[in-house]
Design a protein around this nucleic acid. Structure first.
Lengths: 113, 113
DNA sequence: CGGTATCCTCTCTGATACTG
DNA sequence: CAGTATCAGAGAGGATACCG
């Protein structure tokens, strides 16, 4: 039986982590950019139900957290969004979260049978 | 340069994960139980600003997700909450999230200087 | 095209009182 | 002690119109 020991400051770090990728649209947006969408319009159209207001807000938050970068291409007059190298370093962590989510869902479903 | 590849169903798993430990009070509550608090009153008093309503609701959600278990001790007339073995299996993941949160915070602070 | 501004709704949260 | 019930406020999110 393992023992969990967490310090108070860790809780703050953990809440920060969750906040950065939390909310209704952050992950769908990340997913969309993963799939090659770079422009505002492309991202917006790739996510059903997402409004321009929420997209603008969430892109700004992700940018503030250095997970994506906004590059204004003056030549062609459009902005492009892409992942930062910083974001890419955390692919493994994301994968761990995904793996946990899948196991968790399976466990909950099993427990309801 | 690493490439991130995420499937659509992964996004759902990820949102589930975040939902389970998201919100304002889940992590402080987990932290409190970590520190040996087992009874409703003890947990409530250990977290400034937490109301009985939110504690009751969050304990129920954590219980629904099998992360904690509620044990009614009829002999002494009190309920006790404790982590499930299931929750303990994911200590490593929690630690990874904490580590990420700390590095992330340091990076953001550094970028603002 | 790539956003802002405005208004509205709805959920989450807070304060407080009450109960077995 | 361990909650539940009720009401009210704040903030996230949605619909739509407008702007450089």
């Amino acid at each position: 039986m393992k023992k969990i020991v967490i310090e108070e400051q860790d809780i703050n770090a953990l809440q920060d982590t969750i906040y950065v990728i939390g909310g209704k649209w952050k992950l769908p947006i990340i997913y969309s950019i993963c799939n090659g969408n770079k422009r505002f319009m492309d991202i917006e159209r790739s996510i059903p139900g997402l409004t321009t207001r929420m997209l603008a807000r969430n892109l700004k938050e992700l940018e503030d957290n250095k997970l994506i970068s906004r590059i204004m291409n003056a030549d062609i007059g459009v902005a492009e969004y892409e992942f930062t190298e910083y974001a890419k370093e955390y692919g493994t962590l994301i994968m761990n979260l995904i793996a946990w989510g899948k196991k968790h869902r399976a466990m909950i479903i099993e427990s309801l049978r």
